[in-house]
Amino acid sequence: MRGTPRDVIGAPHPLLSAVAEPVDPTAPEVVAAAADLLATLRGEPATAGLAAPQIGLSWRLIAVDAGRHPEARSRAGELVLANPRLSGTARWGEWREGCASIPGLTADVPRAARITVRGHLPGTGEAVTIEADAFEARCIQHQLDHLDGLLFLDRVPGVLSLHRSLHSCDA
């Protein structure tokens, strides 16, 4: 299904601080939203991931394509997951990240460098397990935070971790 790019909403929009609702990954409206999310991500060349709340939907749905980033190692490619949940983490550290919903600002954010995430593919509802590391792991965690109503700024340990940015890139 071909999606339609949507506008990315910015902070302090209330959807960005709300916990997103679980979805039926086989529902036609969820499949259409997944296509829109992916189309929106493709239209944001400096962005490696988006969550449904960022396009105005309070649904547990994320899209990630971290393979374009030079720090990506696991390179799962374009990935859309419904109802994703983190099931394992390892090797914590701090890395710089930003967000399409908060342009012009980045911060050093503590994240796991290796993760396991489980979810379902929109359309078929097939259960999948993804193992990711490096940049891709951080990007997925960033999107999972959006589903829980958290922005990367909520994870910043202090004001000295904030940085101005000339461009925006999710995770």
Rank of each mutant, 00 (worst) to 15 (best):
L79E: 13
R114L: 13
L150P: 01
A63N: 09
L50C: 06
A39W: 01
E94T: 14
E44M: 14
A39H: 04
T47D: 06
R91E: 15
W95P: 00
A52V: 07
A18S: 15
I102E: 09
A82E: 14
S17L: 11
V30M: 07
S74E: 11
R6D: 08
A52E: 10
R42N: 10
R138P: 03
S161E: 12
L61N: 09
S87C: 14
R138G: 14
A100S: 14
Q141V: 03
G104E: 04
D154C: 08
A11N: 10
S17V: 14
L61Q: 10
E29P: 00
G93I: 06
T129M: 02
A32H: 02
P25L: 04
G77V: 11
L151T: 15
V31T: 06
L16D: 05
G43F: 03
G149S: 07
Q143D: 15
T124M: 01
L15R: 10
L57I: 12
G67T: 13
H146I: 08
D170I: 00
Q141E: 12
C99V: 05
H120I: 00
I9E: 07
T124R: 01
P25C: 05
P5I: 05
C99A: 10
A171V: 12
L16H: 03
V117Y: 00
L38K: 12
R60W: 03
A51S: 11
L41C: 12
I55D: 07
A51W: 00
L150Y: 12
E44R: 12
I115D: 05
G49M: 06
V8G: 07
R6M: 11
T40M: 10
